[in-house]
Write a protein that binds this DNA or RNA. Structure first.
Lengths: 251, 251
DNA sequence: CCCAACCAAATGTACGTACATTCAACGTAG
DNA sequence: CTACGTTGAATGTACGTACATTTGGTTGGG
């Protein structure tokens, strides 16, 4: 193991230099499978274990690396199954929390081009897109109409899947390895059109949430989603404190 | 300074015991004005400075206490002007970001009792409540109808304030010292009633957000709020990533 | 062949020391 | 009375040591 050097004369603390070093090497994919232990790092960089621990402290707190007594330290596991965050996730988990079974009716599932959506995904207008339109049911009652577009070049393996019961993000991760890691969504309050009311089987005096979501995977726009959720029995619930704002699944 | 003792035989680490101790004493309001230094604490509890630093690490990261080189350590300053988090805050800041001036028309401002609200605030049904009803304008156009109830015993000083231009949370902090530190809100999509449409001066085909919020101050329910926001031009916007979910103010 | 005991490895806890760095307050010189 | 330098206090950085605790593999006995 070639000893590596840190600048001892500079003003930057040793532990911070080491922290940057480790993050750089992590980004380079250097520690797959196994992450070196504290003593190993201390020897490799010629610093004390105390300094190594200081450098690792934040990485461990952030979950970048995992360390436990007696265990081989590892770099953060496959980084959770791309836990879908956001209003949609909150809504659907709240339905599950209420004890209602969920399933979907796949109304359309094909490859097509859509100039408007392509633009939002930062693609050429004629780029083929996998398009999935589902009516989502909670219990036996329609809950939402969900439309998703993904670039066909990477999402084509999805066409084999049956989305009656499985989740899009789960299949996406399993069949293509893609995990959506960042996104932005807008939540609007709207009055459904007559056609939408029919699809959702709701009364004429019911409003709805219209949610637009653009998700990225490693910087590339990967999913455009439009969801219309019945507003009569489902609400967004959130808790906030000094620690921040968090959507919660209510019962 | 009477030396205090920590259990050295128990399984709980010393630094964690010390951390709990300090939090307890903080809650008891013991360290207003000045927080003891690391060496002081080390001597007082008979532990090493290293252990004290470990105990203080999280408190400092959380901003509970502030420490800087050379400075007298202090307990967290007045803790920002109770930054109002949540959907409402997001909506109103997005309006400001759009360059529109905001002001309110105070429609009702008195002390009254309300059994339903009192129950939500965990009070007796006949408890007097300060009630403030405002029509909030962005530019010169109605944006939202805002109703707030607070326990009169603590909120009475608010009655002197003019809420045409000032914010409730700012006045609450200034006049009573109360800062709302925790809360929960529900966001519903609804169709406004005819009366509400008139108040908000919006068309008949416009939906709205109905937001209920219950806020606490130091564990005590302190504010019940009901806000109806026009849904035709205002939306919730959020970003999400591995780091979490955050409402943003769009332009 | 299986299971238990042991051992090596790794992190967690806790002590000690030394020096650097920063800030505020005090005192002195001008 | 002001400006500057000194000094004390506090945290930051970095080193060292020792032992406890947990885990997983290895080894040896039944």
């Amino acid at each position: 193991m070639a000893p590596r050097t840190l600048s001892r004369s500079g003003s930057e603390p040793l532990w911070r230099q080491l922290q940057r070093e480790l993050l750089t090497r992590l980004d380079a994919g250097e520690f797959t499978e196994q992450f070196p232990g504290e003593l190993t790092l201390a020897e490799e960089y010629g610093v004390s274990r105390h300094t190594v621990r200081q450098a690792l402290r934040q990485l461990r707190a952030d979950g970048v690396v995992v360390a436990e007594r007696g265990r081989q330290p590892r770099v953060a596991p496959p980084a959770e199954i791309a836990q879908p965050l956001g209003a949609l996730y909150s809504l659907f988990t709240s339905v599950e929390a209420a004890g209602l079974a969920q399933h979907s009716i796949v109304r359309t599932f094909d490859v097509r081009a859509d100039a408007l959506v392509a633009e939002r995904l930062d693609l050429e207008a004629s780029t083929p897109l996998v398009y999935l339109e589902r009516l989502r049911l909670a219990g036996d009652e329609p809950l939402a109409m969900d439309r998703v577009w993904l670039p066909a070049d990477v999402a084509k393996p999805l066409l084999q899947a049956d989305f009656t019961h499985t989740s899009l993000y789960g299949e996406l991760a399993r069949r293509t390895g893609i995990r959506l890691d960042h996104g932005r969504e807008e939540v609007h309050a709207v009055i459904p059109t007559a056609a939408e009311r029919t699809q959702l089987a709701c009364a004429h005096d019911v409003a709805a949430f219209a949610i637009n979501r653009l998700s990225h995977s490693q910087g590339r726009p990967m999913e455009w989603r439009h969801t219309l959720v019945r507003g009569d029995r489902y609400a967004l619930t959130a808790e906030f404190s000094a620690a921040g704002y968090r959507l919660v699944s209510q019962s």
